[in-house]
């Protein structure tokens, strides 16, 4: 029944991204369950992948067999031309895109009879947004954007209205670590929007990243500082009574920058504002930890995380109790829907 409920959650959305926290966390299974349920509801589906999905065996560990992706009849797909031809299914070419991938140039096609396809659409957000819009134009009620490995770029509101997250035992051999890493990732998706109008007006006019000081002055922040890594001297930016209160980033928020800001702020409250949660790259500390240190990470546009699918099995390694895992995650992340789309094989 969980696939049914999953479809309830996404059915009104036009663009849904399915994002995994690592390989083998059940992204493909989530996609397959959703496709079947949407087909039952007579929704015409479009499908693209920023990576590659629907292949028979895993690309890193060939012992792992993967679920195939049956596209319902009348569905649209954006994929590399050679993969579509190799599927041996009847298809109509909708358009050819300018996006090339290591597996060939991508095209959009309609499959009148449906069938199992390998999906490898454009890798970039711009390409994904372009093929998504094209599939919508050609009759797709809803477009599913498949992520790859642990890539989160496609969760950006520029690409997707709604995000489904896949997590599971493959993240770590310890139950507690799987919970912690999933909680940390969900917290990033749920980062609050900045409440300061000055942030939005600075972001709209600035060419790059800027700092907004206590008196409202807008100071450019060089990319060598935001991406420069540990040891970047940020004390000048934050020092004095008129130090920066907000840093509005035009691109990535890397952990080393967040850490240098925290150090230089010496406990004073600073907010780091990114365009959306897909620009946040934290691995050592969580966004929650930074907030407790008075460094709040905020977004300009929110991401809507609709549900989390949990795969309790790590192939050829270990497994956890599915109910226990979902119960623990629900307790830590109240209000979020968790499901297990098993059966899982190991």
């Amino acid at each position: 029944m969980s696939a049914h409920h999953l479809a309830d959650l996404v059915t009104e959305a036009q663009r849904v991204a399915v994002i995994g926290l690592a390989k083998n966390t059940g992204k493909t299974r989530t996609l397959v369950a959703l496709l079947a349920e949407l087909h039952r509801r007579d929704r015409t589906v479009g499908l693209t992948s920023v990576g590659r999905d629907g292949e028979a065996t895993d690309v890193v560990d060939p012992r792992i067999t993967k679920p195939r992706i049956p596209l319902p009849p009348g569905g649209l797909v954006a994929t590399a031309e050679p993969l579509l031809r190799a599927a041996g299914l009847p298809y109509e070419v909708v358009s050819r895109t300018g996006y090339s991938t290591p597996l060939g140039r991508t095209m959009i096609a309609r499959l009148p009879a449906g069938g199992a396809v390998e999906v490898a659409g454009p890798s970039s957000n711009r390409g994904t947004a372009e093929v998504t819009a094209a599939m919508r134009e050609h009759g797709a009620d809803i477009v599913l954007v498949d992520g790859a490995i642990n890539r989160r770029a496609a969760s950006s509101p520029a690409v997707a209205d709604l995000v489904l997250l896949a997590t599971g035992a493959a993240l770590h051999t310890e139950f507690a670590q799987v919970v912690e890493q999933t909680v940390a990732a969900a917290e990033v998706f749920a980062l609050p929007c900045s409440g300061d109008p000055a942030v939005y007006s600075a972001a709209a006019t600035a060419a790059g990243s800027v700092a907004i000081t206590g008196s409202g002055a807008v100071v450019p922040v060089d990319r060598a500082l935001t991406l420069g890594g540990a040891g970047a001297d940020l004390s000048r930016l934050l020092a004095g009574p008129d130090g920066a209160q907000h840093v509005v980033l035009s691109g990535a928020l890397c952990e080393s920058f967040a850490e240098e800001i925290r150090r230089a702020a010496r406990g004073r409250k600073v907010s780091l504002v990114v365009t959306d949660s897909s620009k946040v790259f934290l691995a050592q500390r969580t966004s929650d930890w930074y907030r407790r240190q008075n460094v709040s990470i905020e977004v300009q546009k929110p991401t809507v995380l609709a549900a989390v699918s949990v795969n309790p099995v790590a192939p050829f390694s270990h497994r956890f109790d599915s109910v226990a895992l979902r119960t623990e995650l629900s307790a830590r992340l109240p209000g979020l829907y968790f499901c297990d789309l098993g059966p899982h094989v190991d």
Binding site: A22, K23, V60, S123, S124, N125, R126, A148, I149, N150, R151, R152, A153, A170, R223, L227, S250, G251, A252, C254, S278, K279, F281
Partner: peptide, 20 residues
């Protein structure tokens, strides 16, 4: 996963910085 995640991080940062 470590090696894979290091490679995907480069792609994601390039995307975030608008040069992808």
């Amino acid at each position: 996963n470590l090696h894979l995640h290091n490679l995907t991080e480069l792609v994601e940062i390039a995307e975030a910085e608008g040069i992808r």
